[in-house]
């Protein structure tokens, strides 16, 4: 039997506000964004923090949405599934995503993440502008701006992990911290 309490307890201890596991659809994104907006309104969150969290949520969820297909092709529908969580801590929100990735794609993604993490605020601004102006627009839309934008808006490093599942796939975890705006 499923141990619901175990899952509940884990979510409780990790201060999870919202969690979802499954196929990421366009309708789901609309609902999650609506729910989180309402939650932050109810918690009377500062408009500035609300906007940052909302912006990062959009980018993270759309990243998941656009990359859902990547791990589906080789191992059936089992992998057409991802996890998304948002947790609230003292002074910050954490947005956590997890999805399967082909091992052969890890290197490229890791290089991009490390590059973004190596840049300071001004460098990120320049990098963003150069990718915006010169970068190829992929059919899926983003064109590699998502991670740069997240790093710029949060002012935090992107925390990530690749957990090897087998010789074909790994599980990619991304944790984004959004610091709450302090009232002065």
């Amino acid at each position: 039997m499923i141990d619901a309490f175990n899952i509940y307890d884990k979510m409780d201890k990790n201060n999870i506000l919202l969690s979802f596991k499954g196929d990421i659809t366009s309708e789901l994104l609309t609902s999650i964004l609506q729910i989180m907006e309402n939650k932050m309104d109810n918690m009377q969150e500062e408009p500035k923090t609300k906007k940052k969290v909302y912006n990062v949520l959009v980018e993270c969820l759309q990243n998941l949405y656009h990359h859902m297909d990547d791990a589906t092709n080789f191992n059936g529908d089992k992998n057409r599934s991802a996890i998304f969580m948002i947790s609230k801590h003292e002074g910050s929100y954490n947005i956590i995503t997890g999805n399967y990735i082909l091992n052969e794609n890890i290197h490229g993604l890791k290089t991009r993440l490390d590059e973004v993490n190596s840049l300071n605020k001004d460098q990120l601004k320049d990098y963003y502008k150069s990718v915006l102006n010169n970068g190829e627009m992929s059919l899926k839309g983003g064109g590699g701006l998502g991670m740069i934008d997240i790093a710029r808006k949060t002012g935090e490093k992107l925390e990530y992990d690749f957990l090897e599942i087998d010789n074909k796939v790994s599980f990619f975890t991304l944790i984004i911290k959004v610091t709450q705006t302090q009232l002065i």
Binding site: K51, Y54, N55, V58, E59, Q62, L132, N133, G135, M137, K140, G141, G142, G143, L145, G146, I148, D149
Partner: peptide, 12 residues
């Protein structure tokens, strides 16, 4: 009020 990075290219 908000725009995503996918829109940012189109706005450009």
């Amino acid at each position: 009020e908000y725009f995503n990075t996918s829109s940012s290219k189109c706005i450009l």
